[in-house]
C-alpha cells in the first residue's frame, strides 16, 4: 500500500521507522541529484544525502506539513550542501571536485548508459559550466539549481532558502545573468 508523504511523515513523527523508510526510498534520488549539482562531487553527494536524512529524522517533529515533505528535505539538503561548501572554502579545498578514485566531475558524466554524442556534449557542458557555477554566490547557485534542474517554483525556492519570494526570484535572475556572461562567449566558441 502506497503511503502519501504526509502520512509517512506522520508515522515517522510517531516513531514508526517504516514511515521514515518510505520517505527515504522515495526521495533519495532527488536529493542525490541536488547534492551532486551543488557540490560537483559524487562522494560528497552520497554523504550529504545521508546527512540530510539523519537531520530530517532528528527534526521530524518540526515538520509542520505547510510545505511539502520534498520541499522540506530540499531545504535541509541545501543547508547541508552549503555548510560543506563553506567548510571546504575555509579549508581552501575548493579545487576541481574529484572523487575517491580521482575522477573529476568532468569524468564522472561519462557514466554507463550515455551515447557517445551525449557524453561528449555533457562533458563539454560540464567543463564550461562548472567554473561558471562556482562564480555564483551560494544563494544564487542554490536558487538556480532548484529552479533549473529540480523544477521548483519561486515560492518553493523561497521556502527552501528561507527568504521572500522576490529575493528568491532575484537570485535566480542574477544567477542566469552571470551564467550568460560566462557561458555565452565560451559556448559560442565551442560551437
Amino acid at each position: 500500500m502506497e503511503w502519501t508523504d504526509a502520512a509517512a511523515a506522520e508515522e515517522a513523527r510517531k516513531g514508526n521507522q517504516h514511515g521514515f523508510r518510505v520517505l527515504v526510498e522515495r526521495h533519495s534520488h532527488a536529493l542525490f541529484r541536488l547534492a551532486y549539482r551543488m557540490t560537483g562531487n559524487e562522494h560528497d553527494a552520497e554523504d550529504l544525502v545521508q546527512e540530510t536524512f539523519l537531520r530530517a529524522y532528528k527534526q521530524i517533529h518540526r515538520f509542520d506539513g505547510r510545505a511539502g515533505f520534498g520541499t522540506w528535505l530540499y531545504r535541509i539538503c541545501s543547508n547541508c550542501c552549503l555548510d560543506l561548501l563553506r567548510s571546504k572554502k575555509n579549508k581552501g579545498e575548493m579545487q576541481p571536485a574529484a572523487s575517491e578514485d580521482g575522477q573529476s566531475w568532468l569524468d564522472r558524466v561519462a557514466a554507463p548508459g550515455f551515447t557517445p554524442e551525449r557524453l561528449a556534449e555533457s562533458s563539454q557542458i560540464a567543463g564550461i559550466l562548472e567554473p561558471a557555477l562556482k562564480k555564483l554566490t551560494d544563494m544564487e547557485r542554490t536558487a538556480f539549481i532548484l529552479r533549473h534542474y529540480e523544477g521548483c517554483d519561486i515560492d518553493q525556492i523561497a521556502c527552501i532558502l528561507g527568504v521572500h519570494a522576490n529575493a528568491a526570484k532575484h537570485s535566480v535572475f542574477r544567477a542566469v545573468q552571470k551564467l550568460r556572461r560566462e557561458l555565452q562567449p565560451a559556448w559560442g566558441a565551442a560551437q
Binding site: 522515495r26 533519495s28 551532486y36 557514466a111 554507463p112 550515455f114 556534449e121 533549473h148
Partner: peptide
C-alpha cells in the same frame, strides 16, 4: 543556452538506490 545547461548529467543511480540509502 539554458537548454544546453540543462543537459548536464548526474551520475546515474539504480532503482534500488533508495533501499541502499536506507540500509546505510
Amino acid at each position: 543556452l539554458l537548454d544546453e545547461v540543462r543537459n548536464l548529467a548526474t551520475p546515474p543511480r539504480g532503482p534500488g538506490y533508495g533501499r541502499e540509502v536506507w540500509a546505510r
